[in-house]
Every structure is written in structure tokens, then in C-alpha cells.
Design a protein around this nucleic acid. Structure first.
Lengths: 107, 107
DNA sequence: CAGTATGCTACGGATTCAGTAGCAACATAA
DNA sequence: TTATGTTGCTACTGAATCCGTAGCATACTG
């Protein structure tokens, strides 16, 4: 078996949903996948290319995680954000704006 | 050498700052550390306990990353968010609100 | 049939993480 | 002084995850 999504061994993500979200999005390529899907569905390979040609095994695992979380769906057009994920987009756009400001303060 | 922050091998994070941010925050415990520091400075061990007793080596590496990114500082009171990181707090709070809604749609 | 695109899997090697133990510096107090 | 505690941090081994490449089965198109 390649890799199953890590389940916190210790305190787990008890209680606050934010913990589960921070755990899910705190995995490599999670946020990036959501970001790349912001403008519409993408096929597996196109999404892979958009994510700097991430390994297909990792992308597969990440898509599995995001689908189980109800954030990504797979229809005829490829992989797409669910309504729940689209509700997250304003936040990601705010993150984008912040990133712009943040980069200006960097050398 | 324990571990240096991963530099994307392929396309790197050229161009858009959002890519660099997505890469930095898409590491285990990055978002969680920022979240736990939202209410003020914490010492290393208290922060470690807040993060489900994450391994000190990983926390050390993550703090190093965040300090190099100018998001975390270390003064006499322990580790604290910088002004840049505090500017990110509204976005994290929005993420928290979204997480609440998202969890309600889960079984 | 040949060519192409799709989603997906397998494998080995590299990197990162987890878990535990321990150190040096500093403070406090007996 | 000795004892005790807290701080930040490091070392080490084994497990988990990721990377990079190759390849498969299916479907569609010419």
C-alpha cells in the first residue's frame, strides 16, 4: 500500500474542525491543488502539470484525501471543486492578496 | 544534517508569491504553528504541547522556516508572530469560520 | 489498425517525520 | 554550594511520506 492519509497519532484532531482542516491542508500539494482548480475543472494530467509535475502517486493520494473531505469531485470534465470548496475560494484569494504584500517586504 | 527546507525541484516557485506561500504553508505543522500563536507568544515547549506534542526536531525545522520567511520571531517571551503574520490572521480566522461550516456538512 | 489521451498503479530511492533521549545555559531556592 | 526546574535545542533510529520514472488498461479518433 502506497500511503494512507496520516492520522494524527497523539491528540488527534478532536473538537475544533479547524484542527482537521489545518491537518488536511497542511499536507504537501493540498492547498496547491485547490488553488489550481479555482478557475474550473482540470484533467488529472493537466492538474499534474499545473502543480509543477508533481508525482502522480502523490497527486492521486491528495485527490483521494480531498474527495473524502468533500472538497473535490470527479465528473466527466475532470476534477473540480465542490460547492464547499468554492466557498473557500474567497479565503484563498485573500491569502493570495496577503502573499503579494508579504513578498514586497522580502529582500 | 537533519533536514533543510525542501526547495521545489522542478518548476520552483518562480513568479507568483502565492506559490511560495502555498509551498511554505503546505508543510506539516506550518499552519498549525501560526494558528497556535494567534493569541500571543508561546515558549518552545508550550507551543510543542499545543501542537499535539509534535516532535521537537520537526517543530525546530518549522520554526526555522517560518522565521526565515519573516512570519515568526523569537524574543524574551518566546515565539511570537511578526506584523506580517498578524496581517494573515483575518484570513486564518476566515478559514476557521469556513471550517465550522464545512464540518456541519460532514457525516 | 495506429495514435493519443485518460485515470491510475508499481517500484526504488530520497526526503521528511515521529518518538525518545539527552545536553548546555539560565534561573530559583534551599 | 547543591538541588531543582525551565528554557531552547540536538542526536539518533525507525517509520511514514514524497519523488521520479515507467508502465498498464481503457477509451476515443483518425
Amino acid at each position: 500500500m502506497p500511503a494512507s492519509p496520516r492520522r494524527p497519532v497523539r491528540g488527534s484532531t478532536t473538537g475544533r474542525p479547524i484542527m482537521a482542516v489545518l491537518d488536511l491542508l497542511g499536507r504537501r500539494w493540498s492547498l496547491r491543488v485547490l488553488w489550481e482548480l479555482r478557475d474550473g475543472p482540470l484533467t488529472f494530467r493537466v492538474l499534474q502539470a499545473a502543480c509543477d509535475d508533481v508525482s502522480p502517486s502523490v497527486l492521486q493520494q491528495r485527490l483521494k484525501d480531498l474527495r473524502q473531505a468533500g472538497l473535490v469531485d470527479h465528473d466527466g470534465d475532470g476534477y473540480a471543486l465542490t460547492a464547499a470548496a468554492r466557498a473557500l475560494m474567497p479565503t484563498l484569494l485573500a491569502l493570495n492578496d496577503w502573499a503579494e504584500d508579504w513578498s514586497k517586504t522580502r529582500a
